[in-house]
Design a protein around this nucleic acid. Sequence first.
DNA 1: TCCTTTTTTGAATAATAGTCAAATAACCAA
DNA 2: TTGGTTATTTGACTATTATTCAAAAAAGGA
Lengths: 234, 234
Amino acid sequence: MTVTSERRKRQWGERENLILGTARRLIHDKGFLSLTMSELAKAVEYSVGTLYRHFETKEDLLVALAVQSISQRALLFEQVRQAKRPSRDRAYGILIVRLMLAESNPETFDIERLASSPSIWKRATEERYRTMVAMEQRCSEVVLGIIRDALAEGDLQRGWVIEGDIIFGLWSITVGFHRLVQSFDDIRQVGLADAIEAVKKNYRLLLDGYGWQPVENWDALAVEQDFRETIFQS
Amino acid sequence: MTVTSERRKRQWGERENLILGTARRLIHDKGFLSLTMSELAKAVEYSVGTLYRHFETKEDLLVALAVQSISQRALLFEQVRQAKRPSRDRAYGILIVRLMLAESNPETFDIERLASSPSIWKRATEERYRTMVAMEQRCSEVVLGIIRDALAEGDLQRGWVIEGDIIFGLWSITVGFHRLVQSFDDIRQVGLADAIEAVKKNYRLLLDGYGWQPVENWDALAVEQDFRETIFQS
DNA sequence: TCCTTTTTTGAATAATAGTCAAATAACCAA
DNA sequence: TTGGTTATTTGACTATTATTCAAAAAAGGA
């Protein structure tokens, strides 16, 4: 970056956000693959050359978008972890956050699905790619943190299923959920609402399977409601 | 198709398989996005024009590859369902088949991930797209069949989790597994072997969660071993 | 105001998907 | 076997779009 003064740096960042935001909107309308750089340039009212000062390639732009999404997720995950609630509630909160993000940022599915491909990574800036990996790592760490809290607070017993396994199980469900929503318009027969209910049930079933207390008399709906009301307020 | 005689039809099919097989190999080496049609034409020793008689667009080729993969899976799923074994074994067999396919056809991840995107579908032949959907449906139906067998045989009780929920739970785990393997080289810290163990554990945990009998004294390893020895023989 | 440095621009280039007129091969009747 | 007809294949050509970079414009500063 050849930018020096404070004001310039700020403007640079503002423009980057403008580009990312606009790209997001266009991707939402027509998908990443049929978004063209000149179209994006026109939409933000800058020339293609300027876009390329922010992002080395189109793939780099995609990874930048993924970084945005994953960072936002990491932030909300951290809020969930910090919530003053039993560990099981917070584990469920992770799912709720994902559901909420899916509602508010549907374009993220297209972005993240494509961004998880090696042939994209190769064409992105090394640094941005690293940031993406780091952000994903942070998300995992938050969940791992909640699991450790549960162990410390006695809500979870160290058994034949170890920490890493639990992370993976919960993560699988949410990834499955991503695929589900994304392919929804066309493929599935059941209603989306039913599918989301299924996601939640299976998630709770896994929590029960791990013996994550309290298994009995635990009000999933109330927990969901509460997270929905508090999390997005920051 | 303007092909009439038997021999010609056969040759047409053979060439299509040659193209698909070669594409698969090239995609395995460098990914779908950096596969070019001229490169593929050269590799199969036909001209680009000829490729385009088989597949209307590059996306159409991709969907054709997805159809191949999903059909093969459907076939193996059906074999699992037909196996003379308790329903729980067969439910587990579904996962084992996916693990085996992941080992033998690693390029499928790239193919199926991309092929599950609306912007690709739009550019593929209507018919091929329909076939893909139908094949996926068939896979679901096999699993649904096993669930119904389990209900009929009393290995599973109709409870608060309904059939569709179970399918979705098991399916999520396997989709998560796909994502996992695919992003493995670069992102994850744990070993792949550990991750695969985690997949299996979580899958069994869900089976237990549904109360899918026999929960006690059930030898997962033996079941896996047995499917591995019998399924691919056909 | 004039010179220097930085930034922006968009026409030009390069890569590649997709087309189609011409060439080739297959078929077949006499 | 030949000559005409139909089907298939070919690859040079077109169109699209990512990416570059020389020139123009703007900003900075003495």
